[in-house]
Amino acid sequence: MIRYLRVLALFWGSAVAAELEYRINFVIATLTSLGGLCGSIFGLFLFYRTGYQFQGWTWLDALLVLGIFTLLQGFSATILIPNLNKIVTQVQQGTLDFVLLKPISSQFWLSVRELSPWGVPDLAFGLIMIVYTGQRLGLGWQAYCLGFLPMIAGALSLYSLWFMLGATSIWFVKVYNVTEVLRGLLEAGRFPIAAYPVAYRIFFTFVIPVAFLTTVPAQAMLNTGGPGWWLASLLLAVILLGLANRFWRFALSFYTSASS
């Protein structure tokens, strides 16, 4: 365990050092993140400006969902997306061999090797939004405690889904755009799940669990969801994590290096 933490520190130190060569991009990333937030709020405003409300969600509640969404977006930009891109390149060029030879879990190596500081503005703006709407809604510290675990569970579920998508590159090789599919699906989490028609709700709860990424944590914070959803989100994270690990082993048994 200690060894893994030390390796992690080395990974992220070198990754950040490499990314800091492009410092102007950090400014652009901050602007992008700010622009994205304005865009999302504008998109939400288009619904609420005529007095319409997502069923059971006030304007502030919906903003809270948006804050959690922004936070998750930051998480995926910081860790998920850069690493996913790496898996694909490694399968394509055959350099995955070197990873497999290392005396360390290959899933660990592939999941956390890269760290992109470009997601940090999103993380910051997401937190600011959550705290701001929390203040306006008068949420106490209990609300944040209740929301914390589902949020972590949501991030882990997202990671597992993403890792399984990345693992399919063993078969399909050039799947750069799984990032795009992932991003496209995640977009649905911008809005509380109650805003969608029934068919969408079923899809986003049971087929692709977007509901558990943003809506369930928000409901936990607002104390409207009930303990069932709270537990379900933790359970889902555990199941998906186990599944991701099994799937990776399964996929590896099909790996034939590009060079041999």
Binding site: K174, V175, E180, R183, G184, A188, F191, Y196
Partner: peptide, 18 residues
């Protein structure tokens, strides 16, 4: 990969539902 590209264009469909 192409199928994935087509599927990644779901953004309008999400807003369609909303």
């Amino acid at each position: 990969e192409l199928v994935l590209w087509v599927l990644s264009g779901t953004f309008p469909l999400i807003f369609m539902g909303l």
